[in-house]
Computed example of a mutant assay.
Amino acid sequence: MSDFAGLVAIVTGGGSGIGLATARLLRSRGAEVAALDLEPDGLPDGIVGIEADVTDDAQVQSAVEAVVERFGRIDVVVNNAGIGAVGDVAANGDDEWLRVLDVNVVGMVRVARHALPHLRRSPAAAIVNTCSIVAWAGVEQRVLYSASKGAVYSLTLAMAADHVREGIRVNCVAPGSADTPWIGRSLEQAPDPVAARAALDAFQPTGRLVTADEVAGAIAYLASPLSSATVGTMLAVDNGMHGLRLRPPAPQ
């Protein structure tokens, strides 16, 4: 498939996990891809790595300008850079609240703000934000992370309303429990990482975590010109975790 032929995409957090899987997929489907990351080394051939911290507006502006200077345009922005947080409402201090919101929410604003003038000139402009099912599903010990992703969902809808008449489609993808480096690090901190992974898998309706490639596939759908009538949509990639209510498996 070459639905992205001739298009240029920026993927933040493109050095690992969902971001890297997305960068690879878009490149395989014809896009020129720039992966913005804190450590953009060791990327596959054909993907341009640019060092950028989404909490630094000057770095974001410089990275966007570097993409335009190299490729002459920007058509797709995948706002994927994000960090996690664990705990109830009393667990995280003000500094951590500000840090997570700065990365997960304001970071998306910075990238979109600097990309907008270029997206307005694209015939196939799209922004895809990485949200989460915790934006609308209550999950234990995820207050700060949930608040940030709830903001991403609202941000997506507001941006979609603001820019749809400019020909810029804005959507978001909402992964459930995904097999990413952050989940891996969280499991490693458990007293019994193997048992913790087994319990997390068992919690999923399909009995396994969502893969980074599966989330990338959803992002590519939302970013593709083939989905030109899809605007202001949240696409859940969560193994049915939020919408399904299954009975426990029968004892063996």
Rank of each mutant, 00 (worst) to 15 (best):
M1I: 01
S2T: 14
S2D: 14
A5I: 02
A9K: 00
V11L: 08
G17F: 10
R24T: 10
R27G: 02
G30P: 01
A31N: 00
E32L: 10
V33Q: 00
V33Y: 01
A35E: 04
A35Q: 07
L43E: 03
L43N: 07
L43Q: 06
L43P: 01
D45A: 15
G46L: 11
I47E: 01
S62Y: 03
D88V: 10
V89D: 11
N92H: 12
D94P: 08
W97P: 04
R99F: 09
D102G: 15
V105Y: 06
V105M: 08
M108W: 11
P123T: 11
A137D: 15
E140N: 14
V143M: 13
Y145H: 11
K149D: 05
V152G: 06
A160T: 06
D162H: 10
V164W: 14
N171A: 07
C172T: 04
P175K: 06
D179Q: 07
W182P: 03
W182N: 08
R185L: 09
L187W: 00
Q189M: 12
D192R: 09
L200F: 08
D201L: 12
D201S: 09
F203S: 15
G207A: 07
E214Q: 08
A218G: 15
D238T: 10
N239K: 14
H242N: 10
L244E: 12
A250W: 14
